[in-house]
Design a protein around this nucleic acid. Structure first.
Lengths: 168, 168
DNA sequence: TATTGTTATACTCTATAACTATA
DNA sequence: TATAGTTATAGAGTATAACAATA
């Protein structure tokens, strides 16, 4: 477990073309890049274990409750035209249904079937309970990391809000 | 700036089906998911500003020095057959060259051209110097986050090692 | 025999643009 | 006129399998 006071301070390398604490910033970004790669692999593994492509898995996570196709596109972060094919495949597999919305017949609500909900639950559990990143941390450091990430998340203008947003 | 001692400890929600500090772990994973999404957007923006697709940008970052096609495939994390097309496009744009390796005529070394190196430098600078995540953190917390991420990275079996590995 | 790179093939994801049916 | 969803199209990324050249 890391203790704040004992974080090692390193001598400045004083590289020519780089400002102040650049070296440190580089390493931090490298670590973030590593986190991204690992988290993505983790997510892809989870998806594959549920027989889903990553985009399909992402879509499923966003369908905790019924959602218009348009909104799914926004949540997943792709063009609306893609959702048609994506949803076609999920519907063929019996994981969801297109349902009309009373009051606006243009809209189709995407609702998980019983089976779809089950798959979503399995996927969700895997993604969240088996995160290698969290597992690698000493329990006492998790709250610390959480607070740092909260801080890092604050300043972002297009920050995703809830559990299932931006999963991929 | 977060001080270790003042990290708030929250009462346990005691949710039925979840083990111990599950709620906390969920939030931590959510934050990681958010970080991943943001970092990925950042990377995609940087790539787009250099007129590169994300995989192309990733490849470029891995070509600080000449590398056989096979190894690039490993670094980028895709099948070797994909590299052919990827490299074709980069070569057509004059960003790199296929060069023979003296001593083993099966191998083609991928070497950046002058222009390719320039684009790579621009890309690298953007990715590393303009990270919104690092920018959002109080300078004093960066070293702390770095140490936590180092710890989180240790346990991973397929962890990427260097600056430009696993960039995407 | 094994390895490097290529090709052929197929599938998915992606965006743009044009279309339809509704509003 | 605007919006929701679809279709058509095109391009890129991905994997598998078979292949040629080389080791």
């Amino acid at each position: 477990m890391i203790r704040t006071m004992s974080v090692p301070t390193r001598p400045k390398p004083a590289r020519p073309h780089e400002p102040g604490d650049q070296a440190r910033s580089d390493e931090l970004v490298d670590l973030l890049v590593g986190v991204v790669a690992r988290q993505r692999r983790h997510f892809e593994n989870c998806a594959a274990q549920c027989d889903l492509s990553p985009p399909q898995a992402t879509a499923l996570l966003h369908l905790a409750s019924p959602v218009p196709m348009r909104e799914l596109a926004e949540r997943v972060g792709c063009d609306a035209s893609n959702v048609t094919g994506l949803v076609d495949r999920l519907e063929e597999r019996g994981l969801l249904q297109r349902r009309p919305l009373a009051g606006d017949r243009r809209i189709k609500l995407l609702a998980l079937t019983e089976q779809g909900s089950e798959v979503r639950r399995r996927l969700h559990r895997r993604v969240y309970d088996e995160s290698p990143l969290v597992a690698a941390l000493a329990p006492g450091n998790r709250a610390l990391l959480r607070d740092l990430l909260r801080e890092a998340a604050v300043a972002d203008p297009e920050r995703p809000q809830s559990v299932t947003r931006g999963a991929r």
